[in-house]
Design a protein around this nucleic acid. Structure first.
Lengths: 334, 334
DNA sequence: GTGAAAGCGCTAACAT
DNA sequence: ATGTTAGCGCTTTCAC
């Protein structure tokens, strides 16, 4: 592989001039600039960016920790990140962590070992341990989607409480009073916040909160199906089910159908996220739309600002949500 | 940040000894080894891996070109890649190319500029252009899932022809003779091969091939819906539809339902890929299961072998498929 | 405007 | 078993 010295020799200039021509062309006379460019072509020079990154101390790599890329919502977030990163001249190092702290730790180490400039975490968990903390204390990280809101790191999140309240209000406005909730893992702050929003709406409508209407889940189709089956066989069945994501809702709907329950006549079902599939299931799913791609774009932009020292203290960005009413929710009958 | 020299000074040894202790501990006496490890702790040393990669000429990064991470099947492939890469000590640089040659080219350049050791392409398109070819000619690449089979690069694929034939035979065995096909983009070799398999099965059963039974698509839910709508309104409707992926099939089923067509009584629907959603739609989808994660693992393993010179000429790996019969396909009625 | 030269942090001969 | 030393390819003062 031709290196910068070969170009210099071929052009009859010094390596410094070649470097300048490539980095700050305006500081080189047009004449030598042409000579250099010709030499670059002639020897087929391609800069060794590993050397550049090493020398400059900037890798222009960003590590992204995703609980699972197989989640359609995260896939959209990642798309947004890719776009923003490309525009800003950064590359994304994607880590599929499966929520495993060890895997997270492994990738987080890339920041402390100068392989990446910063990190984006999509889970409410600090991936850095004591050995990774650098001299200044905090490593550059942005926390998005599911966040730890302790003011240490910039955060991009949804007002999950308000969104859950909006959905619950929608259900209540249709006459439902026994509204079940299929939840995410209790370890997830998302779940906590949404539960509060759900209770807010109940309280506002003077409906007593009933703990027995809460069902466990983990954001998967299967978990939704399992909860749906349980709910189908309940003696005093709720008339509506609010699921914490669309996969869960789709799984639950499937269970209801197999139990010969009609959605929404026998039971209304609502989801969260508005993934593409939700518009194409039968009946189309009522859900909360989140600007997934925007989440990604914002997280990257924030991280790059952080790296460039353009941010004083950890900002907190709240993204907007939208209630999407489709046909899986209807009036409470009977 | 403490560097290797600081550790050496602190331990009272040379930098070479520190390097050896970290890379090949067996070549250092236990006594100095302990001294060095203590010093590493004391000064909080974290090796600058950018320097290591630069110096060693091996980045241990692999670029992966994915048409879209939002595709559930690719998400599974990526999961498999992550796993294998982690085991082999490599990191994945994921590029969401949206099938755009310029974006592909941008990321492919990472290989020729020493930012990554090799590349995995999931689309039938050579991402390298003339400026990227290195002295030896070919850059290290493995082509998986949708492949260009010209013998230049290692390939991991499915026997799409046989799989499509198997599915068509299944439909024929149920008594169907008018079997429509909702296709992928014509530019995709996948589509060509599957069409051949479909024709194979028809010919074998002495059913005339009818070009008017072919409908365009692009692997999305929406395309499936559109084709499904068209098919619903046909005067002489096919009794079965073979879709080139599950998203397309799910979109089509939705259109059939809205046209009051019952699946499978009025029309059978089959997909391809066996994504998670397919078992949770109504009715559950008959499809072809592909070992997605294995695709990813195999591609990574092959690429690493290639990088280590363990491969002479481009191997061709054919992954197994499995026909999954669920309830979306049934006997041809009437 | 251009060149000479010093290193970034590390590995790998080569010596001892 | 350990130390010395020469770079890897590039950027960046500091001279001229």
């Amino acid at each position: 592989m031709a290196n910068i010295r070969d170009v210099a020799d071929s052009a009859g200039v010094s390596v410094a001039t070649v470097s300048r021509t490539l980095q700050q062309p305006e500081r080189v006379s047009p004449k030598t600039r042409n000579k250099v460019m010709a030499a670059v072509q002639a020897v087929g020079y391609k800069p060794n960016l590993m050397a550049v990154k090493f020398r400059s101390g900037k890798t222009h790599n960003l590590v992204v920790l995703v609980p699972t890329v197989a989640n359609v919502f995260f896939a959209r977030v990642i798309s947004g990140m890719q776009e923003a990163a490309a525009e800003l001249g950064y590359s994304i190092l994607l880590a599929n962590t499966l929520g495993n702290s060890e895997i997270e730790s492994h990738y987080a180490k890339m920041v402390s070992t100068s392989q990446a400039d910063g990190l984006i975490q999509l889970r409410a968990h600090n991936p850095f341990d004591a050995t990774m903390i650098n001299d200044n204390g905090l490593l550059p990280m942005v926390n998005a989607c599911e966040v730890i809101d302790d003011g240490q790191y910039p955060v991009v999140s949804l007002d999950n409480r308000a969104a859950a309240k909006a959905m619950t209000e929608h259900l209540i406005s249709l006459g439902h009073t026994r509204i079940a909730m299929i939840k995410g893992p209790n370890s997830s702050p998302l779940t906590q916040e949404r539960l509060v929003g759900y209770k807010d709406a109940l309280a506002q409508a003077n409906i007593a909160f009933d703990e027995s209407l809460l069902f466990p889940g983990d954001f998967t189709l299967q978990a939704g199906y399992n909860a749906g089956e349980t709910i189908s066989h309940l003696e005093s069945r709720p008339t509506a089910v609010f699921c914490e994501n669309d996969e869960t809702a789709i799984g639950a709907m499937q269970a209801f159908k197999q139990a010969n329950l009609h959605v929404p006549n026998d039971i209304s079902v609502a989801g969260f996220d508005d993934i593409a599939f939700s518009a194409f299931v039968d009946p189309p799913l009522t859900t909360i739309a989140q600007p997934a791609e925007e989440f990604g774009r914002t997280a990257v932009t924030l991280l790059v600002d952080l790296l460039n020292g353009k941010i004083r203290k950890a900002p907190k960005v709240i993204m907007p949500f939208e209630l999407i009413v489709r046909e899986s929710t209807g009036k409470a009958l009977g």
